[in-house]
């Protein structure tokens, strides 16, 4: 189940997001990392330092692309220039699959640069699935859609979020990037049982899993990616792995980013919940690392 057509039959383990503060460490220390996830938009440029670093990373590591602005759920036609440049990048990275969010964020040519939740309606299913199919056809690689954290629910909704997700991926015939932190954050904001969500997701479509930290405020919870993964999220992760199998897993840490070793160690905690996970997968102490590499 972990290697499936939605992640191009790959069998990736635990990875982390490639972030600027870690560039020097990765390039100089060459740590053992199963794979990196990049935010596509950070590398959809003509040239320069970011692409040079990316090429160096690609020489030594496996990279998967994750986007933040395709807005599968937007009601209007796709931006062809965006698609063309995204395809150019996929050719550079050879990403086995590509993910973006099950949300909307642009209308009438204006971009909010946010991951806005959709009303869970049959019209939204049709519109979103059609856009995902179009992107998948154009890029010629499998697409996985990620459930987002949300802070608002709508009167228009006709089903639960997990019913909506399952309907969309079925209609689009695409994969799921299951973000268990986002499920937890939304469950806190909307008062549903997050385990019910995890138990309902179509397991055979899960291409990848995201884990991350969040921030709890007095009256709501925010998806801030600035903390270690919290226990309730690990519980959801454990259940997801139980249902789906040891699927490619990625830790997102985007704000107050600690050292590379701290982020990587936090990600590797996921191995505790994976059947093949073991102590060997934990990062080596620095003093032992040179000996192993030689």
């Amino acid at each position: 189940m972990p290697a499936n057509r939605f992640n191009a039959f790959t069998d990736y383990g635990v990875g982390i997001g490639l972030r600027v503060p870690h560039y020097d460490h990765i390039l100089s220390q060459k740590p053992v990392v199963d794979w990196f996830e990049i935010i596509s938009e950070n590398y959809m440029v003509g040239g320069g330092h970011a692409l040079k670093v990316l090429d160096q990373i690609l020489d030594q590591y496996r990279v998967v692309q994750h986007g933040v602005s395709m807005y599968f759920g937007s009601a209007q036609p796709l931006n062809r220039e965006h698609l063309r440049r995204l395809k150019e990048l996929t050719k550079r990275t050879n990403t086995p699959w590509l993910s973006d969010h099950l949300c909307w964020g642009s209308v009438d040519g204006r971009y909010t640069h946010d991951l806005l939740p959709l009303p869970y309606t049959f019209e939204a299913i049709r519109a979103t699935a059609a856009r995902i199919r179009e992107v998948q056809d154009f890029l010629e690689i499998p697409i996985a859609v990620e459930n987002v954290s949300s802070y608002a629910e709508f009167h228009e909704s006709e089903m639960t979020e997990w019913e909506f997700l399952n309907e969309v991926v079925h209609a689009a015939d695409c994969g799921i990037l299951l973000d268990v932190n986002n499920i937890y954050v939304s469950s806190q904001n909307h008062g549903f049982d997050p385990m019910e969500y995890v138990n309902a997701v179509a397991p055979d479509r899960v291409a990848q899993i995201h884990i991350a930290g969040h921030s709890k405020f007095e009256r709501y919870t925010l998806d801030t990616h600035d903390h270690p993964v919290l226990d309730p999220v690990w519980k959801l992760y454990a259940r997801a792995i139980e249902r789906v199998g040891p699927t490619a897993t990625l830790l997102e840490w985007d704000d107050n980013i600690p050292t590379f070793d701290e982020v990587h160690a936090e990600a590797l905690k996921a191995n505790r919940y994976r059947p093949e996970g073991n102590a060997d997968a934990l990062p080596l102490p620095m003093e032992e690392r040179e000996e192993v590499e030689a």
């Binding site: 503060p21 998806d223 990616h225 997102e252």
Partner: peptide, 12 residues
């Protein structure tokens, strides 16, 4: 000036 990324998290 530090370099920054585009990310997908909330801005609080």
């Amino acid at each position: 000036k530090p370099d920054v990324d585009i990310v997908s998290s909330a801005v609080i």
